[in-house]
């Protein structure tokens, strides 16, 4: 199983601006300290091996879109954030070059704008012969997608799309065989509700997609359900937008979780890897890197019998599960 991150930012797409790029280049030149490089490959090798991730890269700024690739069956895609535009083009390339079936199955955490805004730019939807199935825990998913393509918001109406598009409402507590995966879902605490998804492939590998999920401070007993849902997962993609202090004070009821709670839930569930996700849009690359390092440290400090590897998702990351 491969998990590809096409969009990892929360709430609003962002982009690194001119001064951010300039400052990274200036810092890299200082770090090189007069060294010379035979070619760009040698320079890239230096950046990879001697600078930390945020100094030489960016986490990216597209909103939530994650692909679960099990090597067979239709494309499996979690959410339709702005990262979906690029996935649409890349998946069409795979159809042409690798003979992949022209069938896409979406799993929507919920219908907030940052999780559906990529769909009007999803090129396969415009192509006759494409088959698109949109799975959601929400019965009003179709209404949300149609509404964002009404004339007041977008020039191309939903009915103009040439793909065969179907909506399916899924229920928590059941297991569904869809394409080459077994899928189940759990309802999460978020405005208008959100759903987490559990994907298991034929080899038994498990990936969880759990974003826009608040773990309420006065309902900590209810977290046993979440722990059971995450149980023994090989990878858990988790909403870690805020610090714990923010999530229980100023930003309480904003519907998001923290890095600390994500580690605790994964520890309890004996999960193997956690991917920090739905990054706060006001965070710079350095802020996200700091949050990542702090989360690794918290995991070490509170680790029980089983170590949890903490990854930080970025646009373009591909994780082999």
């Amino acid at each position: 199983m491969l998990v590809r991150f096409w969009g990892t930012r929360g709430s609003l797409p962002v982009a690194a601006k001119a001064n951010a790029v300039r400052n990274k280049i200036a810092a890299a030149l200082v770090a090189a300290s007069g060294r010379t490089f035979a070619d760009e490959g040698a320079a890239r090798e230096f950046l990879e091996s001697e600078l930390d991730f945020a100094a030489a890269h960016t986490y990216g700024g597209a909103t939530s879109c994650v692909e679960v690739d099990v090597g067979q069956g239709p494309f499996i895609v979690c959410d339709m954030g702005s990262g979906l535009r690029e996935l649409g083009l890349d998946s069409l390339r795979r159809c042409t070059q690798e003979g992949h079936a022209r069938e896409w199955h979406f799993f929507l955490s919920h219908l907030h704008w940052d999780h559906i805004m990529g769909f009007p730019f999803f090129v396969p939807a415009f192509v006759p012969g494409s088959k698109i199935v949109i799975h959601s825990g929400h019965a009003d998913a179709e209404e949300a997608l149609r509404r964002q393509q009404e004339e007041i918001s977008f020039p191309v109406p939903f009915d103009y799309l040439r793909a065969e598009i179907e909506f399916r409402t899924l229920e928590p507590g059941r297991e569904y065989e869809i394409g080459a995966v077994t899928v189940s879902l759990i309802e999460q605490h978020h405005s208008h509700s959100s759903y987490g998804f559990r994907f298991r492939d034929a080899a038994g590998k498990v990936a969880i997609y759990s974003t826009d999920s608040e773990h309420k401070i006065d309902r900590m007993e209810g977290e046993a359900d979440v722990v059971a849902f995450f149980a023994d997962a090989d990878l858990v993609v988790c909403d870690t937008m805020y610090s714990l202090a923010d999530s229980v004070s100023m930003k309480e009821d904003w519907g998001h979780s923290s890095n600390i709670v994500a580690v605790d839930l994964c520890h309890e569930a004996r999960a193997r890897r956690l991917a920090l996700f739905h990054h706060e849009p006001t965070y710079s690359d350095a802020d996200i890197a700091r949050m990542h390092h702090e989360t690794i440290r918290y995991e070490e400090l509170t680790r029980g019998a089983v170590a949890l590897e903490v990854l930080c998702a970025y646009d373009g990351l591909c994780v082999e599960v």
């Binding site: 202090a245 923290s258 600390i260 400090l301 509170t302």
Partner: peptide, 15 residues
């Protein structure tokens, strides 16, 4: 020292 780090990482030392 462990608790101090946890209070800092969670930002509880700010509240």
């Amino acid at each position: 020292p462990t608790m101090r780090e946890i209070l800092a990482i969670s930002r509880y030392d700010m509240v």
